[in-house]
Design a protein around this nucleic acid. Sequence first.
DNA 1: CTTCTTGTTCCATTATTTGGAACGTGATTT
DNA 2: AAATCACGTTCCAAATAATGGAACAAGAAG
Lengths: 269, 269
Amino acid sequence: MNSRQGDDMREIRRGRETGTLGKLMTLVDLVALSDRPMRFTDILSLSDQPRGTLHRQLSHLVEEGLLEIDRDGCYLPGIRLLSLASRSWARNEFRTVAEPHLRLLQAQTGETVHLGVLRGTEVIYLDKVEGRQSVRMYSQIGNASPAYCTGVGKAALSALDDTSFGARVAGLEFHAYTEHTHRSLADLRADIEAIRRRGCAFDREEHESGICCVAAPIYSDDNDMLAGVSVTGPAYRVTPGKLEEWAPLVKAAAAAIMQDMHSRLGPRR
Amino acid sequence: MNSRQGDDMREIRRGRETGTLGKLMTLVDLVALSDRPMRFTDILSLSDQPRGTLHRQLSHLVEEGLLEIDRDGCYLPGIRLLSLASRSWARNEFRTVAEPHLRLLQAQTGETVHLGVLRGTEVIYLDKVEGRQSVRMYSQIGNASPAYCTGVGKAALSALDDTSFGARVAGLEFHAYTEHTHRSLADLRADIEAIRRRGCAFDREEHESGICCVAAPIYSDDNDMLAGVSVTGPAYRVTPGKLEEWAPLVKAAAAAIMQDMHSRLGPRR
DNA sequence: CTTCTTGTTCCATTATTTGGAACGTGATTT
DNA sequence: AAATCACGTTCCAAATAATGGAACAAGAAG
């Protein structure tokens, strides 16, 4: 058999065992994560598939509405994704439970509040509550950012024990988004230690210049779900002092959310 | 050419020609569109698949993050959908082009403005601009509603010629959401006629009691894209008089969006 | 203890996907 | 105008993945 000779331990390759679906979703990712619209040939060069095969795969994806093809012949993510996602969002019980607490935290601090869950080494934002001028709704929701340089991400990571943490961040690459971004696993590990002791994470312009935040971890008893809640704002308003001042509020919000999760979802059948 | 031999009008079956992917997406729909979390057996009874087959299919979907399985063993839409959708939304050029016009229309009327595209006989909302208190952001975005009882939907349908219209609504079922909902194809057809003459559609509590709106169609020259823009609000504020008053504004917004579409997307390569 | 119900695994059979090559078509060059 | 090229699309035998029935666990109910 040609399968996976040697029992390679990686398997970092996302779901290489889902057969046809996996190959197709790789294409969806390719299209959705690229910054520019992609033509058939662009995709062809990035995916190592024969032309005929790729063509049929893309056709199927378009047929199913996961991709769309615009008048220039470029492939784009399809709106069916939007439609499915809106269901996923509206019915997400975790988000629903957390929402009132996010609102409270927003009211207490006046700054933007985020709720995000950890998926692999990325944070996916599930909800956002802003103050007055809603700059751009939706925006952040659904967005994926690296865990190692975001408040919510680091907070969530801090809920893992050393072994699980090590396994999860193995092979992680550190991209320097700003001059404050952690450069290595050692940096991150030290920060995580501090976060564990402190009970909350700070992000002082590590992901985006001029943006600071304070975040607290949310986790289920069996750690099958890791998340975080944060208060974020521009550095000129969100000073180190403010961060310290808000830390207890953020921790309280996280605690309250976990509490509610327990009473609403805890009683498992 | 084998193209459309015989011009078979069937093809109503949603993408039954996408092989494995089609079957899997049917399952995703099943889970995403149900109102309650579904257990394995629930899905089993709705999909006519053997147990073993269904189990593997669901496993693959979970593996790929399109579905998730909660601690009760219930299947839910996965957050990867959210993440993909946020890309789809942020990069949607139509939405981007339309946005400033939606804002203007919102400012002019003070009520909520929607942008939606027609997909089959459903409208999918692409964007929404609200006034002061953003009751609940996201909410409507990505939502799918029947075209025959929504302002945006009827407006979009009115851009079709009789033949295309007939083909599209063939077999459409009319569900009576309110006492004003169209009950039959004849009702709808008559309304569409009026909308064509008038250049805009009214929805007077046809989809939801107490909610009225006025909408105008947006379409590309070759009709490969049908959409609409609307102003919506509670019946006590959005009186018949207001609807008439706003009609020109809504039509102007639609016209402006089409204009911009032409100059930004028109020059095809 | 026995009998259901629910979920999971296995594997020969079957259907789908694959990949290479050939075919169109319009643009660019000779 | 003819020849060449870049880009998509279609076809079909061969390779591969999905199928479905049955057997296997593990609880819950009788």
